[in-house]
Design a protein around this nucleic acid. Structure first.
Length: 401
DNA sequence: CGTCCACAGGAATGACGGGCGG
DNA sequence: CCGCCCGTCATTCCTGTGGACG
């Protein structure tokens, strides 16, 4: 009965463009992952011992964003889990994204949550959260798999302590077989690790090379077949998405986003076809949304620094010294206290990490060593968003680039 | 060929609000 | 309610450095 109702709703809601747009979302795990056969089989064989009640190999996975690391891992782990359930094994796994949970505390909190152990956001010591996780593990599992995605975020800030403790669980509790999958887009990461961790963690290493335009096209085609109604994609749409994403180091997520947003734009304006024009507009929209979200949630001083960067880069770039000078002026203008040069230098690095600006240290010999900062985003988008902050809206108006 | 600029960026420390266990 | 620990933002003090200038 409810199927009939849902069917009606869905048919009503679905447009002429999409059959199922969910298939184009980055978190969707398809049944088929073209051009990743080798990685899948290597990962599967590293983990296969788990099914015999032995410990799986620890795996290190490298690859740039959008090369399928996460989706392949989730795909394999999901299969592994259901197989283990068929075999009635007491096997569990946990997936932690270390960019979202970027402190040891939050990593352990996530691990604990994933096995049903409730822990507060804050208030406990990290060691206590870890203990609770271990206790939960002991009670419910004989084998466990920890997936740490974007693990470089933890390692760079806090060293290999987290990894070390997880690796050690197995030694402390021989009754539980614990294995780790570490996923990173930083190829050099493993060299920064302690040699003990390195050898135990890198038992198996799998590299995910970027997709080329041809492979991206395959991926998009497979998904598009089911996601779109027949014939709505104009000639060249898939090729364009593939080409644009290939330019960005073969990022499949980007390619899928472009295709989906292009479809949504076409739908919004009631067009019956998705054209290459829609793809170009999708590219702009993605960029704009990302920046808006980022800038909107930034702390006041980060906004002021960002504004200073734009105000001083009429030549296309600027330097730390110039930025700081401008920043001090702006602070006076809006009557807030300035932070130190040191802090501004960190804020510039943070903006760099967010991809809003690009910076690199250069030496100008006699004239010192500084950081050259280049804004990457169109100034209108950034200024527009900054203007929405009532504290600084007024001075944004007064700045001409 | 040494100096010295204009910073980079590490280390230690602190203030602060949130949130726990007891 | 207290004492403790957390993450975040910030300060202070500091050592390090590539290369044009003299």
């Amino acid at each position: 009965m409810s199927d009939i109702v849902n069917g009606v709703f869905e048919r009503f809601l679905e447009s002429k463009i999409f059959v199922n747009r969910e298939l184009l979302r980055p978190e969707y795990i398809p049944d088929e992952l073209p051009h990743r056969e080798e990685q899948i089989s290597r990962l599967a064989s590293a983990l296969a011992p788990i099914l015999r009640g032995e410990r799986g190999s620890n795996v290190f996975i490298y690859g740039l964003t959008g090369t399928g690391k996460t989706v392949v891992t989730k795909f394999v782990v999901k299969k592994l889990h259901s197989k283990a359930m068929d075999l009635k094994l007491r096997f569990g796994y946990s997936y932690v994204n270390c960019r979202q949970s970027d402190t040891p505390y939050r990593v352990f909190a996530d691990l604990a949550e994933s096995i049903g152990v409730k822990v507060p956001f804050t208030g406990l010591s990290t060691a206590e959260v870890f203990r609770r996780f271990i206790r939960g593990l002991k009670e419910n599992y004989t084998s466990f798999l920890v997936v740490l995605d974007e693990v470089d975020y933890i390692v760079k800030k806090y060293g290999d302590d987290v990894l070390y403790r997880i690796v050690r669980i197995g030694e402390m509790l021989p009754s539980i077989k614990v294995s780790i999958i570490g996923i990173t887009n930083d190829v050099n990461l493993i060299e920064t690790l302690d040699s003990r961790i390195r050898s135990s963690l890198g038992e198996v290493e799998i590299v995910f090379p970027p997709y080329n335009a041809e492979q991206l096209k395959d991926i998009l085609k497979k998904r598009a077949e089911k996601a779109f109604n027949a014939g709505v994609l104009s000639e060249g749409v898939i090729e364009l998405c593939a080409a644009l994403a290939a330019r960005e180091h073969g990022d499949a997520r980007r390619a899928l986003d472009l295709l989906r947003i292009a479809g949504e734009i076409a739908e919004r304006e009631g067009s019956s076809k998705v054209t290459t024009e829609h793809v170009y507009r999708a590219r702009e929209e993605i960029e704009r949304d990302r920046v808006k979200e980022l800038v909107y949630t930034m702390p006041l001083h980060a906004k002021l620094v960002l504004l200073s960067i734009y105000a001083t880069s009429s030549k296309g770039y600027t330097t730390t010294g110039e930025v700081y000078g401008e920043y001090v002026k702006l602070c006076k203008a809006v009557k807030v206290e300035q932070v130190t040069r040191r802090r501004v230098s960190d804020i510039i690095n943070e903006l760099d990490a967010l991809g809003i600006i690009e910076s690199k240290v250069v030496s100008r010999g006699r004239y010192g060593k500084t950081k050259v900062v280049k804004p990457l985003i169109k100034s209108e988008i950034v200024l527009q968003t900054l203007k929405n902050d009532i504290r600084i809206g007024k001075i944004v108006e007064s700045i001409r680039i």
